[in-house]
Design a protein around this nucleic acid. Structure first.
Lengths: 222, 222
DNA sequence: CGAAAAATCATGCTTTTATAGGATTGATCT
DNA sequence: AGATCAATCCTATAAAAGCATGATTTTTCG
């Protein structure tokens, strides 16, 4: 297990996977350590840096050359999804690979939409991770999610774009406020709140608050 | 960083931490690998086994001697909290150490209640982990949680203990089913579903579905 | 076995949501 | 200048959820 090429059926052009410089962004030291440890004995791959939040990650990218950035979906400051977009905007040459606990279609489409080259669930084994690196470095895509495991009711096809007001309402709904309470809070009419609420349901393609909140929570929106 | 005693201010009786046999139970290979890697260069500690679910864990304990079991809170089959109870019931000599992503007072009290000797958040560093092992092996307790970091809005005062049925209903609510639909699914009356639902609200100390789902999602229950 | 906990069901009432179908005012962009 | 979109507001109805109160039957466990 010490050579990236010594595994079953997996073999790639050495030039492409040679000295792949990797940045890992995750707020869990165990995951950082796990990944570093997994990659430590792979000569062709080099973990050049780690970050525990988005700000650190951006700062690191400004001062260092990185081939692939592993981005955790759930970060303390901003979501990995937003970070992915920032990274692709500011450092287009850096390839990004999403790292998530969850196996959600919603995450995947959103990350890919934001320019990610791959999506890896944290329950992936070493082989998956190495293959992901190789694939992505070669300019390809990688994802090891099995969508049929996803509860269909809770995965929107596309991640909804929410307006400012919709986001506000969503947060207040999640906090347990009712329409009248939200109306009072935002100094608008109950019917307006209800409109925003209905728009949220439509955009998330759900039919009630429970699904809405579950999805939004899964996406780190609340 | 290769000697457990070579770090700042931390020094313990060698007899107590010698050859501590450890079982790690976690469904994320990355965490398993991370812990193993962290502990690999510590001579006094030996990872004698790993398991990715509760059944494997129990089976391993039946056939092997273990000093400390690291238990992930979120396991595929049963919760780490329940597993902790089972372990303490069936193998009282095994010390348990809870491992969680979250920094939730609720989890801690529940685990301790179920006989855990410690509680470690996954964002812990190597030093914390080694100290935890030493403390626990010495018969003490360890926990490195900082409660004030918890978002008040999403942290219940006490972790609700949910019955089997309540969990089922909770999951179905989160999937967007209405009471009539849940009733149909579980072959019970709508009023019964409603009872469970009300009990969920009471146990989570919330007043509507939105808050309920947000909390449950935050706790990884759905 | 006996107590406690869980699961089951019910009635009645109030509040909140969901759904449908508009309409008006600004701001923004082409 | 016209089109588009966000935000605002409205009426009205049906469905669902929330709240109180209480009761019966299983299960579970000491």
């Amino acid at each position: 297990m010490t050579d990236i090429n010594a595994r079953n059926g997996f073999n790639l052009n050495k030039q492409e996977i040679m000295s792949v410089r990797i940045l890992i962004v995750d707020d869990h030291p165990l995951v950082l350590e796990g990944l570093k440890s997994l990659l430590a004995d792979v000569e062709e791959v080099q973990v050049v840096g780690t970050a525990t939040n988005a700000i650190e990650a951006i700062a690191f990218l400004k001062n260092n050359e990185v081939d692939i950035a592993f981005l955790d979906i759930n970060l303390p400051d901003i979501s990995g999804i937003d970070l992915c977009k920032k990274v692709k905007d500011q450092f287009p040459e850096v390839k990004t690979l999403a790292l998530s606990t969850f196996n959600e279609r919603a995450y995947v489409s959103r990350m890919i939409q934001n320019g990610a080259s791959g999506y890896l669930i944290k329950s992936s084994g070493k082989e998956d991770i190495l293959e992901a690196i190789a694939q992505v470095q070669a300019g390809g895509y990688f994802m090891n999610v099995q969508f049929d495991q996803v509860t269909p009711a809770t995965a929107p096809k596309t991640v909804p774009f929410l307006t400012r007001r919709e986001k506000e309402v969503l947060v207040l709904i999640a906090e347990g406020l009712t329409n009248p309470q939200i109306a009072e809070q935002l100094f608008i009419s109950v019917t307006t709140v209800n409109s925003h609420r209905q728009n949220l349901l439509i955009k998330f393609e759900v039919s009630n608050t429970a699904s809405l909140i579950k999805l939004a929570a899964g996406l780190g929106l609340i």
